[in-house]
Amino acid sequence: MNSRAILINIFRWIALLFIQIFLLRNMAFYNLSTPFIYVLFILVLPFHIPNLLLYVIAFITGLTLDTFYDTLGVHTSACIALAFVRILFISVSLNREAIDEPEPSLGNMGFRWFSLYAVLCIFVHHVVLFFLEAFKFTSLTYTLGRTLLSVVFTLFTVLLVEFIFHNRKSA
């Protein structure tokens, strides 16, 4: 990981969290579907990042989100789960030694791989997030509905952002 990648990731972290906290926090469709665009930051961290560092970054990201959302621990746990799924998926779907791309972005990995990766990671993140928030299984269908709708919304925004930046990079 060179210094350029670190700078880009720091800039991405700040930009995505800024958008999440100051714009998307006030946005929801019928109080059911809320986009969590900041997961994109953890999704596109470089491939060769050590696992411990990945967890620490995910932990700090979740903690920052929780501070602003006043839900200490909820986003943190969700981000940790997201990091775990990310490691699992990458190790299952790709040969780690043969990876020559720097980071798992849409432009590098292609639409099919990236969308599957994003769907799985976002789904796990949202399941943990919404069930920890509700903290009970009695309103299971409501929580599950919220989760699925939010997954769709988040996925949409993530793909949108990726498409925009992918085009600019390749041009």
Partner: peptide, 25 residues
């Protein structure tokens, strides 16, 4: 299997934070 063990450790910390600091939970 460090990914899994790290996951257990960090996730436990997250859950503890959730329960200890959120009034509702």
């Amino acid at each position: 299997y460090n990914a899994f063990f790290f996951f257990i450790i960090f996730f436990t910390v997250g859950i503890i934070l959730t329960i200890r600091n959120n009034m509702y939970q």
